[in-house]
């Protein structure tokens, strides 16, 4: 459903992403792992339409089967196509309540009943959010904010859910909880692109994985293959 060919990202003179090619099929969890600064976020942000200096081909094929070129389109267009990004650092709106943050995620929709049903769905996925529904986003703990960021990204009812570092700054037990929910969301049929520094957690749930180093893909394979790969073990899994 998403086909990336020779994607390059520049920030001024800095060449952050070199000729990346990857593909995501419907229903998969695909992960992009790599160290800090490897270009993971740049890649996912380019797909979401947030990067101005992106070149190459990013082709989206939605449910109607019609291929669309994504580069050069604004982020709001991607959301309407069915691509949603939960950004790095959660970016919860601190002055809005939990429920308002979720409503904002559903901005492009106007089916009131559907939105309400999806809010309930999000509360089932993350019961903690339901307890805090009337609280301001800024008062949530880091883990709760991450749950809210994922839930908010789900509210546009995306075909492709992109998650940028959902484990960032979370205690190990919370990482496990968030990742369990991510697999659950995938089992219900949603395609997921997961960008992670926490390679172990990401590879365990991913079907397909790419390793990014200094802006280029150096390894790819199934999650299980990469977990066993000696290079990956040494570089990302602590030997």
């Amino acid at each position: 459903m998403l086909e990336i060919k020779n994607l390059n990202v520049w920030y001024g003179a800095i060449h952050a992403v070199h000729d990346i090619s990857m593909s995501i099929a419907r229903g998969e969890i695909v992960t992009l792992i790599g160290a800090n600064g490897a270009g993971k976020s740049s890649t996912i942000r380019a797909i979401a339409g947030l990067v101005k200096g992106a070149k190459g081909q990013v082709t989206w094929t939605g449910k109607d089967g019609r291929p669309v070129q994504l580069l050069g389109r604004p982020p709001e267009y991607m959301v309407k196509l069915g691509i949603s990004l939960s950004p790095e650092g959660r970016r919860i709106l601190p002055q809005l309540t939990v429920e308002e943050n979720l409503m904002l995620g559903a901005y492009i929709r106007s089916d009131k009943d559907g939105i309400q049903a999806d809010i309930e769905y999000c509360y089932r996925l993350f019961p903690r959010l339901k307890e805090r529904r009337g609280q301001k986003g800024g008062t949530l703990s880091g883990g709760e904010q991450q749950m809210l960021a994922v839930a908010r990204a789900l509210m546009s009812h995306p075909d492709l859910l992109m998650l940028d570092e959902p484990s960032l700054g979370l205690a190990p037990i919370l990482v496990e909880e968030v990742f369990a929910t991510i697999s659950e969301i995938n089992r219900e049929g949603r395609t997921i692109l997961l960008v992670e520094q926490n390679a172990y957690a990401a590879l365990r749930i991913a079907r397909k994985a790419y390793v990014l180093e200094t802006g280029a893909i150096t390894l790819q394979g199934t999650g299980a293959e990469l977990l066993e790969n000696p290079k990956v073990k040494e570089a990302y899994l602590g030997g």
Binding site: A48, L50, P74, P75, E76, V79, K80, S84, L85, P87, R91, L93, P94, Q95, L96, E100, M103, L104, G105, Y107, I108, R152, S156
Partner: peptide, 18 residues
């Protein structure tokens, strides 16, 4: 809601389709 949200974080608000 979009107005209140934009005043705090333009980029995230765009990611919501605004």
């Amino acid at each position: 809601l979009a107005m209140r949200s934009i005043s705090h974080d333009i980029e995230t608000t765009r990611l919501m389709g605004v």
